[in-house]
Design a protein around this nucleic acid. Structure first.
Length: 271
DNA sequence: CAGCGCCCCTGCCCGC
DNA sequence: TGCGGGCAGGGGCGCT
């Protein structure tokens, strides 16, 4: 489920419920996620106070004096703040219980998500130390992307989805950003001009920030029982619209698979 | 080292 | 209504 905007919304939603709160206990119902949940956090975390909560790429970092809890939602994960006594269901694999009676609960049917612990500064962790820039910061520029793209033969869609290049561009928004830029998803990264990278960089920023803006509107419901951070009902121009008319030119939207991921585009508008 | 395919897992939807 | 197949928004890893 979560693309960057959903992770951002989740992070912002749980933050005020966690910062300066103290852990009472940890419940691990199903340790088999993408990687095993380290059992030692059951001993390490109680009585520790949450210092801060932040996001890096699609990872949510919960910082303590002793280290950082690194959460990833994978394809189907979600986090909610519930009362500690609230009944759990089948896929509620992990609880972080707070001394105030609240609980951060991880729900993840497909179990592609992860809960990890590191004692080092989190950004030095193996999963985080090689990530590209955040797409919505000034570190993500045309010059940066253009320079990295030279001599790269990979198609542009997989290029912008590569987390070593830039983080946070998931499958939906990769198609959407390429549509907005008028770039065909199969075009080779190295064959695209700097001028077109200018458009692409701005489309990526535009698509992601619009989605985050929409996600923010559901924040107030975050702690309710149905409190999904919400899926972004932002209008999608091409994603999932195979065969339907392009919203610009009316030509049926095309579909193909790139890197095992569904890809949508308009052959008329994207070259 | 760039690039590709595999795979972790459950749920849901579709067609027969 | 039941069942099998295909597909799903992530992303690290191992192999060429």
């Amino acid at each position: 489920m979560p693309e960057l905007p959903e992770v951002e919304t989740t992070c912002k939603g749980i933050l005020p419920h966690l910062v300066n709160k103290t852990i009472a206990s940890v419940i691990i119902r199903q340790p088999k996620l993408r990687w095993p949940i380290p059992l030692k956090i059951k001993k390490t975390l109680p009585n520790q106070k949450v210092l801060s909560v932040e996001r890096r790429a699609k990872y949510i970092l919960i910082n303590f004096k002793k280290g950082t809890l690194i959460l990833h939602l994978g394809m189907s994960g979600s986090l909610r703040i519930v009362k500690s006594k609230q009944a759990y269901d089948k896929h509620d694999h992990f609880d972080l219980l707070l001394k105030n009676g609240n609980c951060l609960r991880l729900h993840d049917p497909r179990r592609f998500g992860s809960v990890l612990w590191t004692q080092k500064p989190a950004l030095e962790h193996k999963l985080l130390c090689q990530l590209g820039p955040e797409p919505l910061t000034d570190n993500f520029t045309t010059e940066y992307l253009y320079t990295l793209s030279r001599k790269r033969k990979v198609n542009i869609k997989q290029f912008i989805m590569n987390t070593h290049i830039v983080v946070g561009v998931g499958n939906i928004y990769a198609s959407e950003a390429l549509f907005l830029s008028g770039i065909h998803p199969r075009k080779t990264a190295g064959s695209i001009s700097q001028a077109r990278y200018e458009t692409l960089v701005s489309s990526i920023k535009q698509v992601l920030s619009a989605a985050i803006k929409q996600g923010g509107t559901t924040l107030k419901d975050f702690t309710q029982s149905d409190g999904k951070p919400g899926y972004f009902k932002q209008q999608l121009n091409v994603y999932g619209r195979k065969g339907e008319p392009c919203l610009i030119c009316n030509k049926p939207v095309s579909h193909c698979v790139l890197g095992q991921r569904a890809t949508y585009y308009c052959t008329q508008c994207q070259k």
